[in-house]
C-alpha cells in the first residue's frame, strides 16, 4: 500500500494518511479498497499514462527475474558497444528455452540514469536483432520482447550512429526471424523506440500500459499548440490497451488488478506469465512458413483508409 500516489489518487492518499494515524481503524482499510476500486474503474486515458510511467511499476528486469530461470544476459552489438537500455538474453520459461528482449528502465534513480530511462541507442536495437537471430537460428527458441520505453534516445550520438537506420533494419529483419515472437507492452510503448523491438506474432498489452506514436505531451505541444493540453492529447491519441484492442492493433489485453501493477506486482507478473504460456503453446504448433506468412499479413493489413 505504501507507494507514490498519483495525481488522480488524492482521495486514496488522504485515506492512507488516516490509516497511518489510526492503524487500528479497520473501516479505513475497507474504505481504502472501495475508493481504489472506484477510482480505477473510471480512469481517464491520461491517468493510465501516469500509471504506465509509475517508477515502481514492474519493468523488464522484474519479469525476467520472476518468470525465467537460468537467465543468461548477452551483451553488445559487435559494432560499437553495449547499450544497457536494452536487455537481451536467453533463459527458461516454464522449463522451455526462450530468448528475451526488453527495454531496461532501472529500479532506482541511479539505475534509471545509467540506463538512460530506457531510451535506447542504435547499438541497443542492433544488439536486439543480433540476439534475436542467435536465439532463433542456434537455439531454435521462441522470443519474448518486453516494451517499456519513452522512446528512442534523442541525442546527437544516437543520430550520428544511425538510430533511424537501426530501427528500420529491425522493423524489416524481424519479419525474417524464424521462431515465434511474442511482444508484451508492460509500461510505456513509446513510438519507434518501442516498435524497434515490437514486431511479433502476438502483441499483448497490460491493461494499464500505453502504446503511442508520440507522447501526449509532445502531441499537445505540436498539435494543440500547448504542452498543458496533455490530457486532451492523451484522449485523442487512443493509446490505452482498450483503444488498441478496439483498433485491432493488439491481440490481447492482460488483466491488471485495480490499483495497478506497482501495487500488485506478483499478481500482474503471474498474469503476464499465464498469457505468455497460453500464446506460446499456440504459436509453437504453427509451421515456420505459415508463421512467417501470418506475421507479415498481420502487419500488412494494418491501416484504415478509404478506397473509392
Amino acid at each position: 500500500m505504501n507507494t507514490k500516489f498519483l495525481p488522480f489518487e488524492k482521495d486514496l492518499e488522504k485515506i492512507y494518511l488516516a490509516m497511518e494515524r489510526n492503524p487500528k481503524d479497520l473501516s479505513l482499510k475497507e474504505s481504502f479498497n472501495k475508493t481504489l476500486k472506484e477510482i480505477y474503474s473510471k480512469l481517464e486515458p491520461f491517468d493510465i499514462v501516469e500509471i504506465a510511467r509509475h517508477p515502481e511499476r514492474p519493468h523488464s528486469e522484474d519479469y525476467i527475474q520472476s518468470l525465467f530461470t537460468d537467465f543468461v544476459e548477452i551483451h553488445g552489438d559487435r559494432c560499437f558497444g553495449d547499450d544497457p537500455s536494452i536487455i537481451t538474453g536467453i533463459g527458461k520459461f516454464n522449463g522451455k528455452v526462450v530468448g528475451v528482449l526488453g527495454h531496461r528502465k532501472g529500479q532506482n534513480l541511479k539505475e534509471q540514469l545509467s540506463v538512460n530511462f530506457g531510451m535506447a541507442n542504435p547499438e541497443g536495437y542492433r544488439k536486439a536483432l543480433r540476439v534475436a537471430k542467435l536465439i532463433s537460428e542456434k537455439f531454435k527458441a521462441p522470443i519474448i520482447s518486453f516494451l517499456d520505453t519513452p522512446g528512442a534516445n534523442p541525442t546527437e550520438g544516437a543520430e550520428e550512429r544511425g538510430i533511424a537506420s537501426a530501427i528500420a533494419t529491425n522493423l524489416m529483419e524481424f519479419f525474417n526471424i524464424r521462431t515465434p515472437i511474442i511482444v508484451v507492452v508492460i509500461g510505456e510503448g513509446g513510438s519507434g523506440g518501442a516498435l524497434g523491438i515490437g514486431i511479433g506474432d502476438r502483441i499483448l498489452m497490460l491493461k494499464y500500459s500505453i502504446y503511442s506514436v508520440i507522447s501526449p505531451e509532445g502531441c499537445a505541444s505540436i498539435l494543440f499548440g500547448n504542452a498543458s493540453k496533455s490530457k486532451e492529447a492523451a484522449k485523442s491519441l487512443k493509446l490505452t490497451a482498450q483503444d488498441l484492442k478496439a483498433l485491432n492493433v493488439i491481440d490481447e489485453i492482460i488483466e491488471e488488478p485495480y490499483g495497478g501493477a506497482h501495487r500488485f506486482k506478483e499478481e500482474t507478473i503471474k498474469n503476464v506469465g499465464d498469457a505468455l504460456e497460453k500464446n506460446l503453446i499456440e504459436l509453437v504448433k504453427i509451421p515456420t512458413e505459415t508463421l512467417l506468412h501470418m506475421r507479415k499479413e498481420k502487419f500488412l493489413k494494418m491501416g484504415v483508409y478509404r478506397e473509392e
Binding site: 528500420a168 522493423l171 524489416m172 529483419e173 519479419f175 525474417n176 513510438s191 519507434g192 516498435l195 515490437g198 514486431i199 502504446y211 503511442s212 506514436v213 508520440i214 502531441c219 505540436i222 498539435l223 485523442s236 491519441l237 487512443k238 493509446l239 483503444d243 488498441l244 483498433l247 492493433v249 507479415k296 502487419f299 500488412l300 494494418m302 491501416g303 484504415v304
Partner: peptide, 25 residues
C-alpha cells in the same frame, strides 16, 4: 515523420512498409 492524427495506426505503417520492402528485397 508519423501522422500524429492517426496515432498508433500511423506508427504501424512503419512496420507494414518494412514488411513490404522485405518482400521486395
Amino acid at each position: 515523420g508519423a501522422r500524429m492524427q492517426e496515432g498508433i495506426i500511423s506508427l504501424m505503417q512503419m512496420a507494414k512498409l518494412s514488411a513490404a520492402i522485405n518482400d521486395y528485397k
